[in-house]
Design a binder for these strands. Structure first.
Lengths: 149, 149
DNA sequence: CTTTATTGGTTTCATAACGCAACTAAAGGA
DNA sequence: TCCTTTAGTTGCGTTATGAAACCAATAAAG
C-alpha cells in the first residue's frame, strides 16, 4: 500500500516530518542553507536522481518552504531559494548536526564547523530551555494535549 | 535500485538522518519520550505495521539509540527504552515540534504543549546561539570544512 | 540559419521498501 | 489440554526510489 501519511496525527512533530521528513528533503534544505540555488547544483552536490530532485523541489515549493525564482533573461534558469518558513528550519538542522557531531563523529571530530564570523567560534550547543532561560530536565516535563473543539 | 544511503557523506546532518531520518523512526523516538515502552504500545499509538516496527526497533537498538530490556518474569515481555544517546535527540524533536507549532498550526494553536512543571509554562523557543549566548543571524555564519587526514 | 550545448526537467523500467493480513513461537493461565 | 497474550516473522501486492534515456526551450557557435 501507499506510504502512510502522518497528516492526521494531531502532533507538530508528525506534521513537520510529513513536510520535510523524507530521505532527501532535509538534505536539499541543508544545501540551500549552504548556498545551493540551482537545480544542477543540488543534483551534483547531493548525487540525487533528477526525477526525485524535481519531485522534492516541487513539493517544497508547494509547501511554501522554498520558492522558484525565474532568473532567466538568458535561457532556462531558475533559482530555488528558501522562504522565511524554510529558513526557520535552521534550528532543526542545527540540532541534527550537533547530535551527529557528538554521537557519530565525537566531540571535536566533526567534518564541518559552523562558525559565527563575529566571534570566530562555533555555535553553542542547542539545549531546550525553560521559560526562565535555564536548561530543562526531561523528568520535569509534562505533555499537555489540547482538546479538540 | 537500493535506496541510497548517506553513510559516505562527511556531514553530521546526513549521518544523523541516516540513523533516524526515515519515516517512522523519529516518531517511535517521540513516543518513547512520551512514555511508550512496549512493542504493542508503539504499535497501537503509531498505527505502524508490525514488521516495520520490529525492523525499526531492532535498528534503533543496533545503533545504540534504544535498548531492549527483558522484563519478562511472566511470559514474553520486553521494554524498549531510550539510551542516553537516544535521550539526547530531545533537542531535535523539540526543534521539529516548535517549527510545526509555528508553521503548521500557528502560534497558540498547537495540539500539544510541553510544559515545565516547575514553572507551569511551555519551553522557550529553541534558537541557535553564538558562543556569547546571543542569537545568531544566518548571514553571520560561515561553514568551515575540515580537511581529510 | 542550422547545429550543438546548457538547463531543467519527464519517461521508462527494474528493484527495494512499505503495508496488510495471516501465521508462528514461547510462556502463563483456566 | 486448550486458550490467551506478547512479540514477532512470512508472503504478497502496491508504491516509491534510482539510473538512464529521452525531451523541450533557449543560447551560443559556426
Amino acid at each position: 500500500m501507499a506510504r502512510k501519511r502522518f497528516d492526521d496525527m494531531p502532533c507538530s512533530i508528525a506534521q513537520t516530518l510529513n513536510l520535510v521528513g523524507d530521505w532527501w528533503t532535509l538534505l536539499i534544505i541543508r544545501d540551500a542553507f549552504f548556498g545551493a540555488r540551482r537545480f544542477a547544483e543540488f543534483e551534483t552536490r547531493l548525487g540525487i536522481a533528477k526525477n526525485i530532485l524535481a519531485n522534492r523541489l516541487s513539493q517544497l515549493v508547494e509547501n511554501g518552504i522554498m520558492q522558484k525564482v525565474d532568473i532567466g533573461q538568458t535561457g532556462t534558469h531558475y533559482a530555488y531559494e528558501l522562504t522565511e518558513k524554510g529558513r526557520d528550519l535552521f534550528p532543526v538542522l542545527t540540532a541534527l548536526r550537533q547530535w551527529g557531531d557528538k554521537w557519530v563523529y565525537g566531540e571535536g571530530c566533526a567534518p564541518m564547523d559552523v562558525i559565527e564570523r563575529k566571534s570566530g567560534r562555533p555555535l553553542a550547543r542547542m539545549v531546550p530551555l525553560g521559560a526562565d532561560g535555564t536548561p530543562v530536565a526531561l523528568e520535569d516535563l509534562e505533555i499537555r494535549l489540547k482538546e479538540k473543539s
